[in-house]
Amino acid sequence: MTADDLATARYISLTTYRRNGTGVATPVWFARDGGKLYVWTNSDSWKVKRLRRDPRVTVSVCDMRGRIAEGTPHHPGTAELLADTAAARSLIARKYTWQFWLLDVPTALVRRGRRPHTALAITLDPAGPV
């Protein structure tokens, strides 16, 4: 993944790993700040549960359905669960503007203002793609 790929990408395929080593890919929105990628997700999602046990991830640029184009590099990295979601939420809201608010506001209303979410900070391995 080059800087150009990330600059134009709307989605990344975030692969987390089960106990048996099987990868589970999920297309997610992301934002880049400095050398890290930030993802904002529900705290009770399976990807968060898997990351609590194993912080290894693989990241690839994909489309909204999670389809990865042939020849797209897969980048290994590690994900860190962040207690403070405000910075990641702000970065993602800035990147996805009205789409983010269209999903976030109704969800907040249903949950009476509570946002049980977790932010992920993903650091890609400097060695590069696999």
Rank of each mutant, 00 (worst) to 15 (best):
residue 34 G to D: 12
residue 86 A to G: 04
residue 58 T to P: 00
residue 51 L to G: 04
residue 69 A to Q: 10
residue 81 L to N: 07
residue 55 P to M: 07
residue 100 F to Y: 15
residue 95 K to G: 03
residue 59 V to S: 01
residue 52 R to T: 05
residue 110 V to H: 14
residue 40 W to C: 06
residue 24 V to P: 03
residue 50 R to A: 06
residue 98 W to V: 13
residue 69 A to K: 11
residue 24 V to R: 15
residue 96 Y to N: 07
residue 23 G to E: 09
residue 112 R to G: 02
residue 54 D to I: 02
residue 17 Y to W: 11
residue 75 H to R: 08
residue 53 R to E: 12
residue 34 G to N: 14
residue 43 S to W: 01
residue 41 T to C: 12
residue 61 V to R: 03
residue 99 Q to S: 11
residue 107 T to P: 00
residue 86 A to Q: 07
residue 17 Y to K: 07
residue 35 G to N: 14
residue 107 T to S: 14
residue 35 G to A: 15
residue 85 T to S: 10
residue 113 G to Q: 12
residue 81 L to P: 03
residue 114 R to P: 03
residue 45 S to D: 02
residue 51 L to K: 11
residue 79 A to L: 05
residue 48 V to P: 04
residue 80 E to L: 03
residue 40 W to L: 14
residue 112 R to L: 13
residue 108 A to S: 10
residue 56 R to V: 00
residue 40 W to E: 07
residue 75 H to W: 13
residue 52 R to H: 11
residue 36 K to G: 02
residue 94 R to A: 14
residue 73 P to Y: 07
residue 72 T to N: 05
residue 84 D to V: 03
residue 38 Y to T: 02
residue 76 P to N: 14
residue 81 L to D: 05
residue 95 K to C: 04
residue 32 R to Y: 02
residue 79 A to P: 02
residue 34 G to M: 12
residue 27 P to F: 08
residue 115 R to A: 12
residue 86 A to R: 14
residue 50 R to D: 04
residue 84 D to S: 08
residue 110 V to C: 08
residue 106 P to R: 11
residue 61 V to T: 06
residue 23 G to L: 09
residue 67 R to K: 09
residue 56 R to N: 04
residue 112 R to A: 08
residue 99 Q to H: 10
residue 53 R to Y: 00
residue 56 R to Y: 00
residue 26 T to F: 06
residue 44 D to H: 13
residue 31 A to S: 13
residue 48 V to N: 06
residue 86 A to V: 04
residue 34 G to E: 12
residue 68 I to Q: 04
residue 74 H to V: 01
residue 61 V to H: 02
residue 55 P to H: 09
residue 71 G to R: 12
residue 55 P to T: 05
residue 79 A to D: 06
residue 24 V to A: 11
residue 91 L to Y: 11
residue 77 G to M: 06
residue 52 R to K: 14
residue 98 W to E: 06
residue 58 T to C: 04
residue 75 H to M: 07
residue 30 F to Y: 14
residue 18 R to K: 15
residue 104 D to N: 15
residue 64 M to G: 07
residue 111 R to D: 11
residue 56 R to F: 00
residue 30 F to L: 11
residue 49 K to S: 06
residue 62 C to V: 00
residue 98 W to P: 00
residue 49 K to A: 10
residue 72 T to Y: 03
residue 39 V to H: 06
residue 87 A to M: 09
residue 112 R to D: 02
residue 50 R to Q: 13
residue 115 R to Q: 15
residue 28 V to Y: 07
residue 72 T to I: 02
residue 64 M to V: 01
residue 84 D to H: 09
residue 66 G to H: 05
residue 36 K to P: 01
residue 26 T to V: 13
residue 56 R to Q: 01
residue 36 K to I: 00
residue 82 L to V: 04
residue 55 P to A: 11
residue 52 R to D: 02
residue 50 R to H: 12
residue 29 W to M: 07
residue 86 A to H: 05
residue 92 I to S: 07
residue 76 P to I: 08
residue 59 V to P: 00
residue 63 D to W: 08
residue 31 A to W: 01
residue 90 S to A: 14
